[in-house]
Computed example of a mutant assay.
Amino acid sequence: MTAIGFTGTQEGMTEAQKATLLRLLEGGAGEFHHGDCIGADAQAHAIAVECGYCPILHPPTNHSKRAWCDVPPHLMRPEKPYLARNRDIVDEASSLIATPLHAEEQQRSGTWSTLRYARSRGKPVFLILPDGSIGR
């Protein structure tokens, strides 16, 4: 079974990023791990469910930015601080999809930090840039 991890910005995805994510997920199946935050996580959750994926939530201990996506309790991991749960998403996935706010790498960004961690673990990363193109 495929297990995809997802990370994105709380500001949400651009229309181009959403369209590319839909194309990447279409016809697939498996688990879709995300952090249950407002913005990109909630948008990706809806797209993944539409494409037939089973969402697995990794919620943060800080509820101020939580999306509260709807899943049965057995598909929810324990709450953890942001950085720890981001690593769990990567560790449980076979690949990572990232939709950052900026095309250039940022140092103080949870999305970019998660992407760097995935690369350090040798996971394939699909970086969907704001214009919808797939970057390196």
Rank of each mutant, 00 (worst) to 15 (best):
Met1Ser: 06
Gly5Ala: 13
Gly5Cys: 13
Phe6Ile: 14
Gly8Asp: 09
Thr9Trp: 14
Glu11Asp: 08
Gly12Glu: 08
Met13His: 08
Thr14Cys: 09
Thr14Glu: 03
Glu15Ala: 14
Ala16Cys: 03
Gln17Met: 13
Leu24Asp: 00
Gly30Met: 10
Glu31Cys: 07
His33Ile: 13
His34Ser: 15
Gly35Ile: 11
Asp36Thr: 12
Asp36Gln: 07
Ala40Trp: 14
Ala40Ser: 15
Gln43Cys: 08
Val49Arg: 07
Glu50Gln: 15
Tyr53Pro: 01
Tyr53His: 02
Pro60Asp: 05
Pro60Glu: 04
Lys65Asn: 02
Arg66Tyr: 06
Ala67Gly: 07
Val71Cys: 04
Leu75Lys: 12
Met76Arg: 15
Tyr82Asn: 00
Arg85Pro: 02
Arg85Val: 09
Arg85Ile: 07
Asn86His: 13
Arg87Met: 15
Val90Gln: 03
Asp91Ala: 04
Glu92Ala: 09
Ile97Phe: 12
Leu101Tyr: 10
Ala103Thr: 05
Ala103Asn: 01
Glu104Arg: 07
Gln106Asn: 03
Gln107Arg: 11
Arg108His: 14
Arg108Pro: 00
Thr111Ile: 11
Thr114Tyr: 08
Leu115Ser: 03
Arg116Lys: 14
Arg116Gly: 02
Val125Tyr: 08
Val125Asp: 02
Asp131Asn: 12
Ser133Phe: 06
Ile134His: 02
Gly135Phe: 10
